[in-house]
Nucleic acid binder design. Structure first.
Lengths: 225, 225
DNA sequence: GCTCGATTCAAACGCCCGTTTGAATCCATC
DNA sequence: GATGGATTCAAACGGGCGTTTGAATCGAGC
């Protein structure tokens, strides 16, 4: 009864999280999904309305709490700092720690969920894009403000670009796709691997964020051919 | 006759590049694809064997020349340096310039192709993963060697991680997905936007690569809850 | 123990999918 | 101008898709 006794909605969400991870949204059929969840085929449309709404529900279940945790942690750090601007590393911690905690918690979907999220980032379907933008809006705006104070040498525009790069490295890394098999022979043990990961990611991103403004001469482009 | 006079294979590849960009691999049907290309439905299976092989052909057509260009440019820089190790920025240029040139050249698929590539990075389908690994193997290995010489303070393992982050930021940026609509109000003009982009990306990545090794204390994790 | 809304179920609906087939057409070669 | 391989074509194949339906079942409240 243990795992099977959950209610239908949860069973569907759990199965969807796994299968969307493995095959993506389009390639996952409701027939395989409901049969993996041990529920009737019609249950998805009854409880969620449609396959698209189910996908959004899969994301919301994990994303809402994680982003709220990020916002709360940032606020706590700011309270502790008593008005003084936070360091770059501290702000990054407020972003990374909730994500890492989620990835380590199998009861909240763990790495599976972060992989679904990583794929969603790259999906051009409008219903996904709009949904993600709305979900992240508040968190992004708060962290942008914090970074602006921590990095006074950056213009708003420059910071926006750099946050763009940060989100890229972060999503690629947390999703753990490693499309190019870079990590093939690098990881001897899986133990505390994700902790290591963020220990390495944070200094990399902090250095990038703190970098002086780019020299226009550094990247010379052959315009002609 | 101009655009329509191309041979069937090319017409299919062009239409596939566009449609895979807009809807992804699974969500693009051969019926819509062949009708957009103005060819018979059976033409894809006749010329490419299957939908999967068509997808690989779409990637190869652009990826092979771009990665060869990267390798050649790196070799040229190394020749010019005459044995001395290259700077981080110079090596990054050898990665970024061919990608940027491709993205600016509509005759080679331009941004459309890079978006297909960005999505492929996040796709878990084995036939895509294996294909990408093989395509990138040589380029990655050469650039890893170059970076190792340029960044002697990094271990091989640390460099592998940082290259992972670099590829993340690069693919997210070049794919131009901007899942979180960060850039909404930032881009006043589209002109030479991508040039600006890499002018900003290169310093960011160079600073990250050159960062000192991470302090284990910087990111404190609450292990318990 | 009957009622009634909530939930589950098997079955079907209509549609689109990737692929195959075999005949029709093209076109360089003899 | 007949030949024959390469290509195009319309049509069909078998199957899976998301969704809907209407009856069966459940279970708390009277």
């Amino acid at each position: 009864m243990d795992a099977l006794s959950q209610d239908t909605k949860t069973r569907i969400l759990d199965a969807a999280e796994t299968l969307f991870t493995e095959h993506g949204f389009e390639a996952t059929s409701l027939r395989s999904l409901t049969s993996a969840a041990g529920v009737n085929l019609a249950a998805v449309n009854y409880h969620f309305g449609s396959k698209e709404e189910l996908f959004q529900a899969v994301l919301t279940r994990r994303l809402d709490p994680m982003n709220q945790e990020r916002i709360d942690l940032l606020a706590q750090y700011e309270r502790e700092a008593g008005g003084k601007p936070l360091t770059c590393e501290k702000i990054l911690s407020a972003m990374l720690i909730p994500a890492l905690k989620l990835s380590r918690d199998p009861r909240r979907g763990g790495k599976d969920f972060l992989r679904v999220l990583g794929r969603a980032y790259a999906d051009p379907a409008p219903f996904i894009r709009n949904f993600l933008s709305a979900q992240y809006a508040e968190m992004i705006s708060r962290f942008k403000d914090a970074f602006l104070k921590a990095l006074p040498h950056l213009t708003k525009q420059e910071l926006t670009w750099r946050l763009h790069f940060v989100m890229g490295a972060l999503s690629y890394t947390l999703a753990g796709t490693d499309a190019l098999k870079l990590m093939a022979q690098v990881m001897p043990q899986d133990k505390d691997n994700d902790e290591m990961l963020l220990q390495r990611l944070a200094p990399f991103l902090a250095a990038g964020l703190k970098a002086p403004l780019g020299d226009t001469k550094k990247l010379e482009l052959v315009a002609g051919d």
